[in-house]
């Protein structure tokens, strides 16, 4: 018999408390202190007649934890179902620790690698054109989606238990693939607009009285528009992926190249 100390509302509140997960973030137990705080009100209700047990469970939960904050309601809500049904402490802990890695993986790739860059590129372009709707859409759109993820994972966690994680990753890979298509298309387009490298070289030729100006940039544009930005982004991509450079090295390289090429009048 499943016990029902906690109501739907308690699970929903715990879900929303996921926003507080990182409020005690530190390099000792990472999200641990915050995690215990997220589930604290629900625990207080489960153990309202047993203050010693409440202390014990809270102490168990300040241990090190580090996962994706948007998917954490899934863990907290499964855990609460297990706790109110007196599942053995060790099993609860195993479940919690088993979910930490996969959820961090799924959650980070979705929020950090796909949603954030996608919104970031589209909204920054709007802003570049002077539209205040850029940052507004960025905040509203991104947070709307992330809140939805929190609520959905919280509901799943409450209702279904661990088997859902496999289903979730299958659907997620579909979503990831779809978002990748949109992502690479948008970003390939943006490279041509937002990376700006020009060649100032001009060649003036006199044929009789007429002066003919040959601009190298125009010749390059004739071959392919935005060729240099594309090639430079390609170089960055190559160094990142094949040569395993980190972002700092690329920033320094770019500044050095900018200084040299500008002063030799190669690029402008």
């Amino acid at each position: 018999m499943a016990s029902n100390i906690l109501t739907k509302k308690d699970f929903f509140n715990t879900t929303l408390r996921a926003f507080f997960l990182q409020n005690g973030f530190n390099y000792s137990n990472y999200q641990g202190t915050g995690y215990a705080n997220v589930i604290y009100p629900a625990l207080k209700k489960i153990y309202k007649d047993n203050p010693e047990k409440l202390k014990e469970v809270l102490l168990d939960n300040v241990e090190m934890y580090n996962t994706n904050p948007h998917f954490v309601p899934f863990v907290t809500n499964i855990q609460l179902v297990m706790l109110e049904n007196d599942v053995a402490t060790e099993d609860v802990r195993n479940m919690k620790m088993a979910l930490m890695g996969p959820l961090a993986g799924i959650g980070d790739s979705l929020s950090q690698f796909l949603l954030a860059p996608l919104f970031s590129t589209i909204c920054a372009t709007l802003a570049m054109n002077g539209q205040i709707s850029g940052p507004v859409l960025f905040l509203l759109g991104l947070n709307g989606i992330l809140l939805t993820i929190k609520i959905l994972t919280g509901m799943y966690g409450h209702k279904l238990g661990t088997s859902i994680i496999e289903k979730l990753s299958a659907q997620m890979s579909k979503l990831t693939n779809a978002a990748s298509i949109v992502g690479v298309m948008v970003i390939s387009g943006l490279v041509t607009n937002h990376v700006k490298i020009g060649v100032p070289f001009k060649y003036v030729q006199k044929i009789g009285d007429k002066e003919q100006v040959v601009q190298l940039q125009k010749m390059i544009d004739g071959i392919a528009p935005a060729l240099l930005p594309v090639l430079y982004t390609g170089l960055m991509y190559y160094l990142l992926k094949k040569k395993k450079w980190n972002t700092y090295q690329l920033v320094i390289l770019t500044i050095v190249i900018a200084f040299i090429t500008f002063n030799l009048k190669i690029f402008a």
């Binding site: 690698f113 860059p117 970003i187 390939s188 990376v195 490298i197 982004t233 960055m236 991509y237 920033v251």
Partner: peptide, 11 residues
């Protein structure tokens, strides 16, 4: 030129 790094990382 620096935005190239951001684009390349995401790609």
């Amino acid at each position: 030129m620096l935005p190239a790094i951001g684009f390349a990382t995401i790609l």
